[in-house]
Design a protein around this nucleic acid. Sequence first.
DNA 1: AAAATGACCAGTTGAATAAAACAGTCATTA
DNA 2: TAATGACTGTTTTATTCAACTGGTCATTTT
Lengths: 190, 190
Amino acid sequence: MAVDRKQDIIEAATKSFSLFGYKATTMDQVAKLANVGKGTIYTFFKNKEELFDEIIQTLIAEMREAAEKAIDPSLTFHENVHRALFEILQFRRRHQLTIKLFQEGKEMGTPAVLDVMAMMEEAVLSFIKEKVLLAVQAGKIKPCNPEVTAFVMFKLYISLIFDWEQRGAPLSEEEISRLFELYLFEGLST
Amino acid sequence: MAVDRKQDIIEAATKSFSLFGYKATTMDQVAKLANVGKGTIYTFFKNKEELFDEIIQTLIAEMREAAEKAIDPSLTFHENVHRALFEILQFRRRHQLTIKLFQEGKEMGTPAVLDVMAMMEEAVLSFIKEKVLLAVQAGKIKPCNPEVTAFVMFKLYISLIFDWEQRGAPLSEEEISRLFELYLFEGLST
DNA sequence: AAAATGACCAGTTGAATAAAACAGTCATTA
DNA sequence: TAATGACTGTTTTATTCAACTGGTCATTTT
């Protein structure tokens, strides 16, 4: 039976990080779960954080792919931005690993986790920035700083989905899409 | 020499909360600072939290007043919203008490502080909501849910001022005003 | 020879507990 | 009658030390 020790380690670590978080996952535990001597882990990864980072890079790639898939060229730009952002935030809700890490970052402030969360946010911003740049070049939206625009879109989404939810009834996907359109695309001016 | 013991207590407590935060301020300390026996404090305030709340209510009233003053009827609605929000956030930066509390809330999560911060946010949202409602009725902006609109405006401001600042160069007041106008009033649509 | 291993080490953590500080009370004082 | 500060039960903080953890490396397995 062929074994890919590196893959075993990654799978074991992913499972453990998802279940217990970063800090509460020990390298002994990962070794045992992966049926591997602890030293073996260190032949593939320099340390715990690098193992963690590699797992997150994979997760980010999957997230990007999911967002890309949500885009439909036959729809308007604003609908697509909505679909992509909504998909990314749903992705976060679906994956135990991101849920656990989000929680650990907020409750315990584990530095390695905060680092990784910043990387994930950066990846999302970079993704949207790319789309905004294309839309500006195609004349689909007004000229604007793509970096600030991506940032504002993302923050508005986080606010509408997560922050608003803490003040009462959560908004439906349709409502969020509509508000997104109203505030950022149509504008409030009469 | 006439003495207003209640006022002395409030001033002493304000000073101490500003200097050391809520948790690190002891009632013994406040009593000593106010030149008052500890028991005297409890003839005016039921407990530490109520003393704290009374101080915050005053602060909120001052904040509202400052925001109201920033409004100039001869300017456009969006300029006034900008001026009011900017003034409120500057107010936060100017007052040692809010700075200290903001820090304590984030770093230590003291429940009484989080409560009070929520009250302050609520006051700001209520203020903006009021202005939005008037603007809608006057036909100065499109019909919209005033609660959600106030929420979005506030969150956008926090993002542009505090969150963006952590990613590089802070935006100037003019830039913030311009971005506010672009995103929320004009919209990105071509 | 190369890859895998787990006993081992230095540094860190967290449980246990002792000591100090605290918010709030109330019998005494002015 | 209003003010007080010594007092109390509880919470917070400081200290200790045994258990644990990430990472290494001499030894074993392939």
